[in-house]
Structure formats: structure tokens, C-alpha cells
């Protein structure tokens, strides 16, 4: 077992993990943060996207042990975040989710795109979502919702 100290959604967590445990499994099984979904476990689908030290990463492609000393933020850690609130509102009003399984990863990816100023057009948003698979919506409404939230956040951007 490997000892780790990680800040998870703002709170310090000290734990012992089996070295092979992925960050995704640790968050879900060890911390009961089940909003992080595992759908492919090989880095293609994006459902498990979380922030580590402020940047989106695949929780299935990082060992929990390698998270030692990092700050991890999951979908449960955004409840008071204004940009995430705007995104959630836009996803709701634009019908940008159906089954909800990709949604956590979509929201975190979208949050990062807007934060980095990479959501200025529908085409740019679509490229930015290339690593997040949604099987339900056909993407049109997701792109529209992100464009809307980006416009609200920055006063720029155009929808589809």
C-alpha cells in the first residue's frame, strides 16, 4: 500500500491505496464520489474527467498513488462555482444531457474550455469536445449550451 495525502474538493484526505488503484476507482470506491463515471477505462471516452491541480485529466489514466500532494476536484466540488452554475443552467435549458453518464466529464471539459478561452465558436467547441463521447444527444445541444455559457462568461462567442 502507498500512503497518500490529497486535497479532494478542498478537504485534505490521507489514505493508503493499493498502487494499482486508479484515481477514478479511488474517488469512486474510496471517497464515494460517484459523480466521476468510468466508461472505458482506457482514456478515450472522457466520462471520468476530473481536475488535478486545476487541469482536466482522465481519472482512469492516473494512479491514485501519483496524486500524492495534488489537488483533485470532481463534479461534486463545483457546487458554488459561478462558471459551473452557468454551464449547468445552460445544459438544463438546452437539453444537453439525456442519460447523464457523460455529463460530469462534459461539464468539466466545457468548464476548462471556457476558462482557457477555447469556446469562441461552435467549431472550436466541437474540437474541444473530441475527447468526450456522448452516446445520447448527438452533441448539437451540448455545443449550443457551452456556447451560451461561454457567451455569458466572456461576452463573446457564437452559437450554432
Amino acid at each position: 500500500m502507498t500512503a497518500i495525502r490529497v486535497i479532494v474538493n478542498g478537504a485534505e484526505v490521507i489514505d493508503n491505496v493499493a498502487p494499482r488503484t486508479s484515481l477514478g476507482d479511488w474517488l469512486r470506491e474510496g471517497r464515494n464520489l460517484t459523480g466521476t463515471h468510468l466508461a472505458c477505462e482506457h482514456g478515450v471516452c472522457g466520462a471520468c474527467t476530473v481536475l488535478v491541480d486545476g487541469e482536466p485529466i482522465r481519472a482512469c489514466l492516473m494512479l491514485a498513488a501519483a496524486g500524492e500532494g495534488s489537488e483533485v476536484r470532481t463534479i461534486e466540488g463545483f457546487d458554488a462555482d459561478p462558471l459551473m452554475m452557468a454551464l449547468r443552467d445552460a445544459f438544463h435549458r438546452r437539453h444537453a444531457l439525456q442519460c447523464g453518464f457523460c455529463t460530469s466529464g462534459m461539464l468539466i471539459t466545457a468548464w476548462d474550455l471556457i476558462r482557457r478561452g477555447k469556446a469562441s465558436s461552435a467549431a472550436e467547441i466541437r474540437r474541444g469536445l473530441a475527447g468526450n463521447i456522448c452516446r445520447c444527444t448527438g452533441y448539437t445541444n451540448i455545443v449550443a449550451a457551452i456556447a451560451e455559457a461561454a457567451t455569458a462568461a466572456e461576452g463573446v462567442g457564437d452559437g450554432e
Binding site: 482536466p56 485529466i57 482522465r58 475527447g131
Partner: peptide, 9 residues
């Protein structure tokens, strides 16, 4: 190259 979440690591 791949996706941003992959490029970050």
C-alpha cells in the same frame, strides 16, 4: 494530439 485531458499529463 489526443485530447486536452491526455495532453495535460
Amino acid at each position: 494530439l489526443a485530447y486536452r485531458a491526455v495532453r495535460n499529463r
